[in-house]
Design a protein around this nucleic acid. Sequence first.
DNA 1: TCCCTTGTTTAATATGTTTTAAACTATCTT
DNA 2: AAGATAGTTTAAAACATATTAAACAAGGGA
Lengths: 157, 157
Amino acid sequence: MEKAKDMLIEAAVNLGESLGLNRAVCQIYALLYLSNAPLSPTEIGKSLEMSKGNVSINLRILEQWNAVRKVWKKGYSRPLYTANEDIEMIIFDKLKTGIEKRLSYVKPIIMQVKNHKDRNLAASNEKFFARLDRIERLIGKIEFFLQNLDTIKAFTK
Amino acid sequence: MEKAKDMLIEAAVNLGESLGLNRAVCQIYALLYLSNAPLSPTEIGKSLEMSKGNVSINLRILEQWNAVRKVWKKGYSRPLYTANEDIEMIIFDKLKTGIEKRLSYVKPIIMQVKNHKDRNLAASNEKFFARLDRIERLIGKIEFFLQNLDTIKAFTK
DNA sequence: TCCCTTGTTTAATATGTTTTAAACTATCTT
DNA sequence: AAGATAGTTTAAAACATATTAAACAAGGGA
């Protein structure tokens, strides 16, 4: 049983790393996701053979992502932690906000370059501006795509 | 003009890093993408103030991704390089094969765990197996999504 | 053929990230 | 209140990756 959990946790790490996540974050989330009851940081650290500092840091990260949440057990003053199960949403939100942030940085730069385009240069740089246009269309597509992902998600349910 | 290129290259680096790409790869691709004519490794290195070793390594990576290609100019024995312009395809293919590879690693592990599920344990681990099912459905969704991305891409054109 | 230029490979350096160990803070138990 | 337990923060270490510098190989022109 524990062996199975370990294998699944390792698989989660493997998947998470392709999204640029670190090992600890994936391990902790997967452990909580597969646990029947909420766990304390100490239990997490013991189970994953990970320093408590590392548990603390990465639990905070997961909380910021809304991937885990505190559970207050009656009589206990310290919270336990449990996984929020809608990992689709978690992954999606993280990707979406990340991409949007990047695009909002790139877009004004392209605008700026296009507006500075002076007539003399333009002739000799036909190709250059054509490629800028192409990039702008791509950005438009990505934005369209993000706006519609919610719909698609619902559709595939 | 060169200033504009530098800004755009920097923006490309910024975008690329959110996909986990290194600086050099993004710079080289963006430079070739925005250049009117194919460039030699030496020219690339000079333009980006980057060692020729680094240019060489990362040009090879870009070639493997089909993101750039060699151009043989008459009379020259060494190739120049130019960007393949369909970066949507490049990004998409890279993401798609990456995700597929990861899923093909994870799927059999889940199968295995589910098949080992023995009756005694099963009762006490209702929740555990329910979550496994949930993950399996998620993987199914992702696969469906990937299979249909081509269609969606065409649709948004 | 010999040198000069160009490109590749490799080992070392530099940079960035993750993890831990240890100091610190807060909470709980007696 | 004192000692023990749990959690956070930080500085250092371990680790991974990217970049360069330098040795090497291949081709081009004298």
